[in-house]
Design a binder for these strands. Structure first.
Lengths: 208, 208
DNA sequence: ATTTGATTTAAACAAATGTTTAATACTTTT
DNA sequence: AAAAGTATTAAACATTTGTTTAAATCAAAT
């Protein structure tokens, strides 16, 4: 039942299905992905999808929850690090997310659309994240930062600005390159530049 | 004859279908929207969809192209206005897009995912926009602005920053409210504040 | 009033889709 | 080696889905 009888260095059938499902769900969404496509992509018999995961819906919920974890887990370890300054956390955040989303361009779209459906696991993961983020050392460091810079605006603006400047350019990469007919490498270089520029800009904004 | 029927009689069958299709495609995507859903939502017989639009695919392409126009047309008139300063254009851009995307929260997601599919009409619209944006008075005003502020970075960064700070917070509205359990009105107020804050921040960034 | 053409309808169609079944192969336990 | 449990398969299944058909209704032109 638990499929742990595999030879250690082979990929289990269960995992093969998940790898294919992850790829297809993130690319084509829930409705755009057909169970037969998942079977073909993973090279398994279609009945095994239901054998291991009960239904396409259940499989999707597992994949969606894992995507949310992928996106937020590393973020949390950055925020919670007691031994790094707020400036260092900011740099780390930008660097980590540019790299993560460069190698996984559909992750953000997938998490956003998954969060719009009713998925209790996803919702509880997001709530968990919220609580831990508020309790993190980053939160107290920000209060100090706001005092020093005499910031009157909501701390949410600060967070929104960091995330917006970092993540949005990765979301429109394809739109940009398609519509504007630009060499992918040029845009990639711009994204690399932003790893250093965004922390600088954020400071400039606080002083404005 | 009641009021509802009169209103319905004013709208052609073709337009009724497009209104329903626009709503459903933007909400559920191409694969998530079923032709019978469109028929039910618009109150027409399902055969009329194919009678007026040949296929679900053709209908989708029309809706997608119109969405791209909705998003970029007003932007272009702002950029091309010879009688407004670059600062005024910036304020106008932020204000217009916050309002537009507040009333049409799915528009961005829809345009982004539409641009990922192969749709010649959408692609040519995006290329048109590119050419006109480069030729606009905004482009020459930016060159002047970059000189005055001794900006060494690519002008693309400047544009990316404006669009990121404006648009991204609207894209994650639902994720934010869901995961963070926040009153929708509070977030709406934050978005209103950003109409004034973003132009201020952009200036601060240029001086950093 | 009749004819012509456009619009609308219920029903039918074939293909696709998610899921289940029942038989077969493979592993582990006894 | 036999039995029991697990994994895999081809085929079947009931629905759903996009599209078409052929008849009916309506509007305008002759």
């Amino acid at each position: 039942m638990n499929g742990k009888q595999m030879i250690e260095n082979d990929v289990s059938t269960e995992e093969k299905i998940k790898i294919a499902a992850r790829k297809l769900f993130q690319e084509k969404g829930f409705d755009g992905t057909k169970t037969r496509d998942i079977a073909k992509e993973s090279g398994i018999n279609i009945a095994l999808l239901n054998y291991y995961f009960r239904s396409k819906q259940k499989l999707f919920e597992i994949i969606a929850a894992e995507a949310v974890k992928d996106l937020f887990f590393n973020l949390l370890t950055i925020l919670e690090n007691e031994d790094s300054t707020i400036d260092h956390k900011l740099s780390q955040f930008v660097e980590h997310h540019v790299d993560l989303l460069k190698s996984n361009p559909n992750l953000i779209h997938f998490v956003l659309s998954s969060s719009h459906e009713n998925n209790p696991t996803v919702e509880s993961l997001l709530n968990d994240f919220k609580i831990k983020a508020i309790q993190s050392s980053f939160a107290s460091q920000y209060i100090q930062y706001a005092k020093e810079n005499k910031l009157s605006e909501s701390p949410v603006h600060y967070l929104l600005n960091i995330v917006s400047l970092t993540v949005f350019p990765l979301m429109i990469k394809r739109l940009f390159e398609g519509g504007f007919d630009i060499d992918p490498k040029i845009y990639d270089e711009l994204l690399e530049e932003r790893k250093i520029l965004i922390p600088k800009w954020i400071k400039g904004m606080s002083e404005a």
